[in-house]
Amino acid sequence: MSRSTQILLWGIGLTFVLPFVVLGLWSVADTWRYPAVLPDLTGDHWQRLVSGQSLLLTGLLRSVGIAVSIALVSTVLGFYISRAIAYHQHQRTWLFFAYWPCVIAPGILAGLVYIFFLRWGWAGSWGGVWLGHLLLALPYAVIVFHPFWTPQIRQYEQLAATLGASRIHIFSTVLFPMAKGMVLIGGFQTFLISWFEFGLTSLLGVGKVQTLPVLVYQYIQEANPYLAAVAALILMLPPAVVLWVNKRFLFTKLV
C-alpha cells in the first residue's frame, strides 16, 4: 500500500471514532452553546446514571435483561430449529419463511400486530415487548445457524448415533462444541437485535417499557442532548468492547 493510500484509510478509519467523540463530549458537557467548539465539562450526567436519579440505570438493567434472555432463548431454539429445517428435503422452502420478519421494518411489523397484542393483553408489558423481540431475533438465529448443518455434520451425528451415543450426548459433546464459534456469534448478534431495537419496542411497549433506545429518543425529544448522549454511549460501549475481544462477533453471517 502506498503512503497516501494508508493515510486515506486511516482518515476513514478515524471517522468511525467520531461518533464516540462527539457523543462523549455531549455526555460530559455542562452547557454547550453555539458556537463553542468544546463544552464546559461536568461529570453530572454520568453521576446521574450511577446514583440512579434518572431513568437511565433502570433502563440499562431492563435492556440487559431483555437482550440477554432474548439472545439465550433465540440461540438455543434457533439452533434446534435450523437443524430441523436443514434436515428436511425442502429446506430452502422452509428457510424462506425465516426471512419474512427479517426484511420487514420492525416498526411496521409492530404496527400490524399491535391490535392482537392489545387484545391478548401483551401490549405495554415486558412480556409483550419480549415476544416482539423474539419475533425478530429467532428467525435471524435460524438463518445464521442454517449453514452449520452441512452433510458432513450430519455424518458426524450419524456416526455418533451409530456408536451408541444418546441424543443429549450427541448435542452436548459433538454438535455444540463444533458449533461453538457460530453459537457465540449468533448469540451476540441476537443480543444486539434486541439491544438496539427502537421502533417495535416503543410501539408495543406503549411507552411503559423504557429500554435504552427508547430513552435516547425520549431525551432527544425533551431537548436533553446530555442524557441522550449518555444513554447512546451505554448502548455503544458493550459492542465496542466485545469487538476488541473478538471482531467476528459483529460481522453478520447473512453473508
Binding site: W195, P213, P239, L243
Partner: peptide
C-alpha cells in the same frame, strides 16, 4: 478494529 466499530452503533445513536 476501527472498521468494525460502526457495526456496534445503533441506528438511533
Amino acid at each position: 478494529y476501527l472498521l468494525f466499530l460502526p457495526l456496534g452503533i445503533p441506528a438511533i445513536a
